[in-house]
């Protein structure tokens, strides 16, 4: 149960998900390849934004998904 919850909190593959990283406010596109992305949800109290690479922004998701787009001010 605990392991399942922890998996849900991590980016994971879910083919055809209705809550893909692509529409999530924490996602920002990959710098080079538009099919990839970066998750920026992991933010440290000291100000660090620790990104995770997203191999496939259409078919990856996690429990922290939130629709929307952050302002440039909240990104790196």
């Amino acid at each position: 149960m605990q392991a399942e919850k922890s998996l849900q909190n991590q980016p994971h593959t879910e083919a055809g998900t209705s809550r893909p990283c692509r529409s999530c406010k924490w996602q920002t596109p990959d710098p080079t390849d538009p099919h990839r992305g970066q998750c920026t949800a992991n933010r440290h109290a000291m100000g660090g934004v620790w990104k995770r690479w997203l191999r496939d922004v259409e078919n990856t998701t996690c429990a922290r998904h939130e629709e929307g787009k952050l302002s440039f001010r909240d990104h790196v």
Partner: peptide, 10 residues
């Protein structure tokens, strides 16, 4: 995080 004492993502 790196061994200079930096946190991940800083």
């Amino acid at each position: 995080p790196t061994p200079d004492g930096r946190f991940g993502g800083e």
